[in-house]
């Protein structure tokens, strides 16, 4: 197990370098950061040249990248155009997005698994068909539609919640955005659970559990769920990574000042240090989440052992 983790961590290095370099390249290919710094005004050529030299922008791209990476490992993600250090922006944004992701994951787990178990156990019944149709509808609606519609209905028309989230983003204001963020994955979790349950219900070991005279409750929780939830849990694990990065639309709709919002603003203003910095951290989060999922898999399924 220990050796496996070390091997995986080593494998992460090329993925990390490759993906960050690509991001670095793409962001700088977007335009001239110095020009962006001055907005609509044309910069004075002498000042521009000075800034270029200060920020290593006169160096070749690979040198810039190396310098940037060197700085990152010293904890310096550079400075955003408004003069704030990027790390400060991160310290404000990541906890917000993390909270939003947790709300979404919680909803996925509770609602998705419950619906999945119900429809999986009652295959072909009314509840199963309704859940199937419902998930199909949810999967087909893009987040920017469901987000705006729910925001309008709950925030404006019925006035049950604040339509936008305040800067501190307290948990209770994140419930609706959490639902919006969870919706698509929620449908997948439901379907995955349903298939997995329906498959395991017919398994021989479940028949054994019945033949042992176990109470129905115990058969379902201990024998059926334990086996059926392995793929679900691993899906949700990988989803943590994609939810954190994929919250851009949701965060923009609800004006949540999280990671997605910052990246969006960064792209809009061609603010390279913010974009590259935030995405780099996302890459790390994603890689670690994937590793944890693989390790979790081995814990849940004893047949899988890593050497």
């Amino acid at each position: 197990m220990g050796r496996y983790v070390i091997r995986r961590l080593i494998q992460m290095a090329p993925v990390f370098i490759g993906s960050t370099f690509l991001i670095f390249m793409m962001v700088f290919a977007l335009g001239d950061p110095v020009a962006a710094l001055f907005g609509d005004k044309a910069p004075d050529p002498a000042t521009a040249a000075r800034i270029r030299e200060e920020l290593y922008l006169d160096q070749p791209l690979w040198k810039q990248y190396l310098h940037y990476m060197g700085q990152i490992f010293q904890g310096d993600f550079g400075t955003a155009f408004n003069g704030q250090p990027v790390t400060e922006l991160m310290a404000a944004a990541y906890p917000v997005t993390l909270r939003l992701t947790m709300v979404a994951i919680f909803i996925e787990l509770v609602v998705g698994i419950t619906l999945g178990v119900l429809s999986g156990l009652k295959r072909g019944h009314f509840i199963d068909s309704s859940v199937l149709v419902l998930t199909l509808v949810v999967i087909s609606i893009p987040t920017f539609v469901s987000g705006y519609v729910l925001q309008y209905l709950f925030g404006v028309k019925w006035d049950v919640i604040r339509p936008t989230v305040s800067v501190d983003a307290p948990l209770n204001e994140l419930i609706l955005p959490g639902i919006v963020l969870a919706l698509v994955s929620l449908a997948y979790v439901t379907r995955l659970t349903r298939t997995s349950i329906a498959e395991n219900v017919r398994a021989d070991y479940l028949r054994t559990a019945v033949a042992k005279g176990l109470p129905r409750r115990r058969i379902i929780t201990r024998h059926l769920l334990r086996n059926s939830l392995i793929p679900v849990v691993t899906f949700i694990g990988t989803d943590i990574g994609s939810l954190m990065g994929g919250a851009i639309v949701t965060e923009t709709i609800f004006n949540i000042h999280g990671v997605g919002y910052q990246i969006y603003q960064g792209i809009l203003r061609n603010n390279a240090p913010t974009v590259v910095g935030f995405v780099t951290i996302l890459v790390i989060v994603f890689l670690i989440a994937n590793l944890l999922v693989d390790l979790l898999y081995a814990v849940l399924d004893p047949r899988i052992r890593y050497a």
């Binding site: 021989d204 070991y205 054994t208 033949a211 042992k212 005279g213 109470p215 024998h223």
Partner: peptide, 25 residues
């Protein structure tokens, strides 16, 4: 009926590998 099953009459199945729960010791 459930209390009879397993306690007073029990069954042995053909394929022990698939008849035992893979994730429980």
């Amino acid at each position: 009926r459930r209390k009879v099953r397993g306690a007073e009459m029990a069954m042995i199945f053909q394929d022990a590998l698939s008849s035992l729960n893979p994730v429980l010791s």
